[in-house]
């Protein structure tokens, strides 16, 4: 009786130990084996036993979700999503319980992706006081953020310095893209023509400074401060006005005028003085 009991214990122990042992699984064989896989995956077949497989496909940047369909002799891998990827070296890991098998692959996109040409301009704002040169960095990227050759035989990155024209305006680096606009802006004011007009109806003198221009004959920027300064010997009158379309003006009531000498300034540029008679 004792022996029977002992035998039973031994048998039970053996069963337990054998249950702890890992099942030995054979490495699945890739049918039509290739170093390069094209994404999205099209029916990647493996010969393997069992139906408890898990697959993890790593692109160069991230794991790509795939699903498994089992067939007679193994299984097929399909993409979960029909997307392209960042091309580059990848890893496929097939897992069955604790058994893991790795396949080094190179992943490429199968479909011709949309290519976006990017034209980075620096500076976007060209102030003619400094320079009319503009840097252009040009490259092409596909929709999956792979850098591609912009043109046959071209470098991946192209760079050039453009000499822009000196005409103030808003221009586009890429004709179809408002976002690519760059701006040529006027330089400092160099000439300040000043004239005065008596407006009878209002009984005022209108003093007009303009057209205010930079050295390339562009009208200066809207909003520029034009200082009209006049002195009647007793008081110094400081009138700051803002230019619009290259002109700034002030009005002085005629009865206030008692032989005024008046001039206009934009930063350090100064007009000639004119004298208003009462």
């Amino acid at each position: 009786m004792r022996i029977i009991k002992l035998n039973m214990v031994v048998v039970l122990l053996l069963v337990l130990i054998s249950a702890c042992n890992n099942e030995i699984v054979q490495e699945p064989i890739m049918i039509n084996s290739s170093d390069t896989l094209y994404m999205p995956l099209k029916d990647l077949e493996f010969e393997a036993k069992g139906d408890q497989w898990e697959a993890i496909l790593n692109s160069f940047t991230q794991p790509i979700p795939v699903k498994i369909r089992y067939g007679k002799n193994g299984f097929h891998l399909y993409p979960k999503k029909d997307h392209g990827i960042v091309e580059g070296p990848g890893r496929l890991c097939l897992q069955h319980g604790d058994n893991k098998f790795y396949y080094k692959v190179y992943l490429k996109n199968i479909l011709p992706p949309k290519i976006e040409e990017v034209d980075y301009r620096s500076s976007k704002i060209i102030n003619l006081d400094s320079s009319n040169a503009q840097q252009r960095i040009f490259l092409a990227v596909d929709e999956w953020r792979n850098i591609v050759d912009a043109a046959e035989g071209a470098e991946l990155f192209e760079e050039e310095i453009l000499q822009l024209n000196k005409k103030v305006g808003v221009y586009r680096a890429q004709g179809h893209l408002a976002l690519s606009s760059y701006y040529i802006e006027p330089g400092s004011c160099v000439s300040i023509p000043l004239k005065a007009k008596y407006i009878d109806i209002k009984k005022v003198y209108r003093i007009i400074a303009g057209p205010l221009k930079d050295r390339y004959d562009n009208l200066i920027a809207d909003g520029t401060v034009v200082k009209f300064i006049c002195d009647n010997g007793k008081f110094t009158n400081l009138m700051e006005e803002i230019s619009l379309n290259g002109f700034a003006s002030i009005e002085i009531t005629a009865e206030e005028v008692n032989e005024y000498s008046i001039f206009a300034k934009v930063d350090d540029a100064k007009s000639l003085s004119i004298t208003l008679q009462p």
């Binding site: 920027a221 401060v225 700051e240 803002i242």
Partner: peptide
């Protein structure tokens, strides 16, 4: 600076 500055300036304003 505290109050002795014009913080917002128009073009060519000082």
């Amino acid at each position: 600076p505290a109050t002795a500055l014009i913080y917002n300036l128009s073009p060519k304003g000082s």
